[in-house]
């Protein structure tokens, strides 16, 4: 009897405090998600009033689509480069900007700024830089690598995406790493110093193990952002030249809304969700294992 009333009390408290949030979360996240999965089994075209169940046909078509797989591989390549470069650069920045150099607050703010600009605007700014400014400089100072637009060449266009993404995200990751650096206990560093450890040893054996939580978060964020990138892709290259830089989000979107294969696009989006979820869970699981207590 008492158990029961306690449960009801708990429920009441929950409803009062978290009820509205749960309701909103359920209606705007969970329901659309489930409905989206349901749509992958139908022949819905995005507009008609009726649709039929088609079983796994959409998934079969999704996996038969060689361009989907190609775009997926390209995205993996993109994720690999952006994750590595973003984190290495962010970590270095954080290291330098916590070493007590002059004007470090100014630099911190400066490196963080790109993150405050929306991806679309940022894409347009860089589009101007790559297709006009650098070409101008290249032609006037005879630098062959800049004399034609980077956006017109498939390989270079891919690298513009990586460069812009790294530029945008490393500032944000830097802030997280700075917080990580500040949380490394001073007594541990002092003890290492007294034991005669040099800077490299201190970094590998003390600082990095203590910073695993920051690394976990940053890796997770960069991975997830890398897989989901759309705005920079759209504004900077629009998937071009000739669809050579069409990353997976854009591919799925075009499949659904441009080719009007709603079911197939939705199925591919769901596959993408599963992959990203799997990668993120594995990554978080392993980096959690590496965490140590001071």
């Amino acid at each position: 009897m008492r158990e029961e009333s306690r449960f009801i009390d708990k429920l009441k408290t929950y409803i009062v405090y978290a009820g509205p949030t749960t309701f909103v979360f359920f209606t705007v996240i969970i329901l659309p998600f489930l409905f989206g999965i349901y749509l992958t089994f139908t022949s819905y075209d995005g507009i008609s009033n009726s649709h039929n169940l088609v079983g796994f046909a959409n998934y079969i078509e999704a996996f038969k689509d060689t361009k989907f797989l190609a775009s997926f591989l390209l995205t993996l390549k993109y994720v690999l480069y952006t994750v590595v470069f973003t984190n290495v650069i962010a970590f270095l920045f954080a290291y330098i900007l916590t070493s007590g150099m002059k004007g470090q607050n100014f630099f911190r703010a400066g490196f963080f700024t790109p993150n405050l600009i929306g991806g679309i605007i940022l894409g347009f700014i860089w589009q101007f830089i790559f297709s006009k400014l650098l070409v101008y400089i290249g032609n006037n100072f005879n630098i062959p690598i800049f004399s034609t637009s980077w956006l017109a060449d498939p390989v270079r266009a891919f690298w513009t995406l990586v460069i812009v993404s790294v530029w945008q995200n490393s500032g944000y990751m830097m802030v997280i790493y700075i917080a990580g650096f500040m949380n490394v206990p001073k007594d541990l560093l002092e003890a290492a110093n007294i034991d005669g450890a040099n800077a490299w040893r201190r970094m590998v054996n003390v600082i990095i193990p203590m910073m695993i939580p920051s690394i976990t978060i940053c890796l997770f964020l960069t991975l997830q952002r890398g897989f989901m990138v759309y705005d920079v892709n759209l504004a900077l290259t629009k998937g071009g030249p000739f669809k050579s830089t069409e990353l997976i989000s854009m591919y799925v979107y075009n499949q659904a809304f441009l080719s009007q294969k709603y079911g197939v696009g939705q199925a591919q989006a769901f596959v993408l969700f599963l992959v990203v979820a799997l990668v993120s869970v594995i990554q978080v699981y392993f980096s959690k294992k590496m965490e140590v207590e001071a």
């Binding site: 297709s131 034609t148 637009s149 956006l151 017109a152 060449d153 071009g240 030249p241």
Partner: peptide, 8 residues
């Protein structure tokens, strides 16, 4: 024609 795809 030196960079045919860069135009807008």
């Amino acid at each position: 024609k030196s960079s045919p795809l860069s135009g807008t």
